[in-house]
Simulated scan of single mutants.
Amino acid sequence: MTGRLHNKTAIITGAASGIGKASALLFSKEGANVIAFDRTDAVHEVAGRINEAGGRATAIAGDAGSESDVEALVKAAQATYGGLHVMFANAGITGGVRGGFFDATPDDWTEVLRVNLIGPFLAVKHAAPIIQESGGGAIVCTASVAGLRSGAGPAQYSASKAGVINLVQTAAQQLAGTGVRVNAVLPGLTETGMTKPMYDGARAAGKEHRIGQLNPMLRGGEPHEIAAAALFLASEEASYVNGQALAIDGGLSSSHPTSRPPGDPKRPSS
């Protein structure tokens, strides 16, 4: 039995940790040649783990918001594996959580937009032609439920992710007839390096049980759960899915919760 990405080549940005790392490992398990891309040296450990397990992976360090780095990344995929079938533009930053809305500076906004929105644009721009030449495939971008409405992240982060949602819709239309699909995953609260300070703070305060309590699943997500959704969108199982934003958030975005009522949330009152 072959995997869902058998003989496919996939680039994953932000692959050194969290959702990107989980996706690199999963995509490899499903048969993909993986190019793991990140600005930290830990990306080499991820590629090494894949190769040790019998997969095929290459680690490349670089900046997902730099056009020259993204262009070189796509060319490396061609040179190493002879083509490209999947681009998972996952790299992102929060931009910090210091102060509030009016404390943010234009520089804060510029850097977040550069990585979180211009980065996925560059991924589409440079990967799409090569994916088309390789016989078609998929581009998946990591947005966030924070891009749907206020309350799930800092303003600059939320705005950047709203942009990603529109980007995949626009790109899907621009790539009509090319055989290249473009979709987004929208994680809710997920335990990654980005959210580590919040998780650590909750655990230190003995409030870990409150993490994720505003969604119907009553918990936070795990990177492998987001990776599974990205794998679906990257595979031929999603061959008729295009221009969509798939929320993986425990049901958070199905409502507008602000607080839980007192009592046991698992049991309705009589």
Rank of each mutant, 00 (worst) to 15 (best):
3 G>C: 07
4 R>C: 00
6 H>W: 13
8 K>C: 03
14 G>L: 04
16 A>H: 09
16 A>N: 09
18 G>D: 10
19 I>T: 08
20 G>N: 12
20 G>V: 07
20 G>W: 06
21 K>H: 12
23 S>T: 15
24 A>V: 07
26 L>P: 09
28 S>D: 13
28 S>F: 01
40 T>I: 04
42 A>I: 00
42 A>Y: 05
44 H>S: 12
47 A>S: 15
48 G>A: 03
50 I>W: 11
56 R>P: 00
57 A>R: 06
62 G>C: 10
64 A>I: 06
72 A>L: 01
72 A>D: 10
72 A>P: 02
74 V>W: 12
77 A>R: 07
78 Q>K: 14
79 A>W: 00
79 A>Y: 00
87 M>E: 08
88 F>P: 00
88 F>W: 14
94 T>G: 07
96 G>Q: 13
97 V>F: 15
97 V>M: 09
98 R>I: 09
100 G>F: 08
105 T>A: 09
106 P>I: 07
108 D>G: 04
115 V>M: 00
115 V>R: 02
116 N>Y: 12
117 L>E: 05
119 G>M: 03
121 F>V: 07
125 K>Q: 14
128 A>E: 05
128 A>Y: 03
130 I>M: 09
131 I>N: 11
132 Q>S: 11
132 Q>F: 00
135 G>E: 08
144 S>V: 03
146 A>F: 06
148 L>N: 12
152 A>G: 02
152 A>P: 00
156 Q>C: 00
158 S>Y: 03
165 I>G: 09
167 L>D: 08
169 Q>C: 02
170 T>Q: 10
172 A>C: 02
173 Q>E: 10
179 G>Q: 13
184 A>D: 14
184 A>P: 13
191 E>M: 05
198 M>E: 15
198 M>Q: 15
200 D>L: 00
200 D>I: 01
204 A>K: 09
205 A>P: 02
206 G>K: 08
206 G>V: 04
207 K>R: 15
209 H>E: 15
211 I>T: 11
211 I>S: 02
215 N>F: 10
215 N>K: 11
216 P>G: 05
219 R>C: 05
219 R>G: 01
219 R>M: 06
219 R>K: 13
220 G>M: 03
221 G>E: 01
222 E>V: 01
224 H>F: 05
226 I>A: 03
227 A>F: 06
229 A>M: 14
236 E>Q: 12
239 S>D: 11
241 V>A: 12
244 Q>W: 03
252 L>M: 12
253 S>A: 14
253 S>T: 14
256 H>Q: 14
256 H>C: 02
262 P>C: 02
263 G>E: 05
